[in-house]
Amino acid sequence: MNRVAFVFFAIFLLRDHCLLVLSQNAEECNSNINFNDNVQFDTTAMFCQTVWGDKDYVLRYVQAGTELWSFLLSAPNTNSWLALGFSSNGLMIGSSAMVGWIYQNGTAMVKQYYLQDKNPEKVTPDAGELNVKLNSTTVYTRSNRIYLAFQLNTKQPQKSLLYAVGPYGQLPTAKDELRLKEHRDKDSASLDYTTGRSNTISSPYTGIRRTHGALNMIGWGILMPIGAIVARYFRQWDPIWFYSHATIQIFAFLFGLVGFILGFVVEGFIKAEVTHHKNIGILILILGCLQVMAVLIRPKKGSKPRKYWNWYHHNAGRIMVIFAISNIFYGIRLGMEGSSWYGTYAVILALMLIVAIVLEIRLCRQR
């Protein structure tokens, strides 16, 4: 009992410590902070709002001239790069972003990047469509926060803003030509510069993309392995095991086929370069079609060809499941869905693996 009480006491202490750290790093718009000592332009009359509540991002901006706008973005300092992008349609591809970071030796760096594609190799430094005012860029840290400041020469900045934070401790280096590593998290919102209202942007294709991923996950990544488990470990229940196996695999194939078609729809809409993901998906579909055809030409039990048919059917199924699981995780990364998708699918896989291990031990003992 004393140990249980000690554990709960420790949890409460840890929670209070985390809340204290967050409160120390948090910044409110009504905070009386003087930025003029660090920023290259006047910041006294800037509009202010929290734009990414989960990450405690605070954006300040003001129209400083007829064709001049000032921006100051702040966030908790996590030894990562900080980015503010401007998009015409709320999407990453085709937008431009100001990115800032500070090396361990104190050297500060601010660069404009052109976001040509989601592939980090296509995120080009020293490129973009933003007309940045000369000598207006600054990035600095204070009180466990990082600040990115710059000015744009434009009549009206684009209203769709993109926010992103880089991976922990992985800053761009000269060795990699200052290429950005894939962001750790991102958000997007539309900003009305007159009223200051900010609304989260939801991509019109997000639903289709997630449906594509969910169907493939259910079909190729969950139902297909379950069907294989039924076929291997429940043969004593003949012919129920066969009809169950066949029914599960048919539904798996149909789910996967619809998900495969939606993948091409998504690719056509967002013009993303997902060659490897697509090619693996085509391979999985081909293997699935071959499995369906193999059932139609299944030799009779006891015949000589049946041995070779079994070898092909079993191994082709195993290969398909391996490729499917790998491509599902790869697709989650490409879709930038975050830890919730990774975690959910990983838990499902772990449960299926535990069940398979228990059933395999039972099968070995029976033999």
Rank of each mutant, 00 (worst) to 15 (best):
L73A: 03
L73Y: 03
L73R: 03
L73V: 04
P76S: 01
P76E: 04
T78D: 14
T78K: 15
T78L: 14
N79A: 11
S80L: 05
F86M: 06
S87P: 11
S87H: 02
G90R: 04
L91A: 14
L91Q: 09
M92P: 07
M92C: 09
M92T: 06
G94F: 05
S96A: 07
S96F: 03
A97H: 03
A97Y: 02
M98S: 05
V99I: 07
G100A: 02
W101N: 05
W101H: 01
W101F: 13
I102E: 08
Q104E: 15
G106I: 02
T107A: 11
M109H: 12
M109D: 07
Q112N: 07
Y114Q: 12
Y114T: 04
D117Y: 04
K118T: 08
N119G: 06
N119M: 08
P120K: 01
P120Y: 01
P120I: 01
P120N: 04
E121M: 14
E121R: 15
V123H: 04
V123A: 02
P125C: 05
P125V: 00
P125A: 01
D126S: 15
G128H: 04
G128W: 03
G128C: 08
G128S: 06
G128V: 00
L130V: 01
L130N: 02
N131W: 06
N131Q: 13
V132Y: 00
V132L: 08
K133S: 07
T137W: 03
T138V: 10
T138F: 05
Y140N: 08
R142A: 07
S143H: 15
S143T: 09
N144E: 13
N144A: 14
I146Y: 02
I146V: 11
Y147P: 08
Y147A: 02
Y147D: 01
L148R: 02
L148M: 06
A149W: 00
F150C: 07
F150T: 02
F150M: 04
Q151T: 04
Q151Y: 05
N153F: 11
T154P: 08
Q156D: 11
P157C: 02
P157E: 00
Q158N: 13
K159C: 12
S160I: 06
S160E: 10
S160H: 15
L162I: 14
Y163P: 09
Y163E: 03
A164G: 09
V165L: 13
G166F: 01
P167R: 00
P167L: 05
P167H: 03
P167F: 04
Y168Q: 13
Y168H: 14
Q170Y: 09
Q170V: 08
L171Q: 06
L171V: 05
L171T: 06
P172E: 02
T173Y: 01
A174L: 11
K175I: 09
K175H: 12
K175T: 10
K175E: 13
D176G: 10
D176Q: 14
L178G: 06
R179D: 00
L180R: 03
K181A: 10
K181H: 13
E182R: 15
H183C: 09
R184M: 13
R184I: 03
D185A: 14
K186Y: 14
D187K: 13
A189M: 12
A189L: 13
L191Q: 02
D192W: 07
D192G: 10
D192C: 11
D192Y: 07
Y193W: 12
T195Y: 08
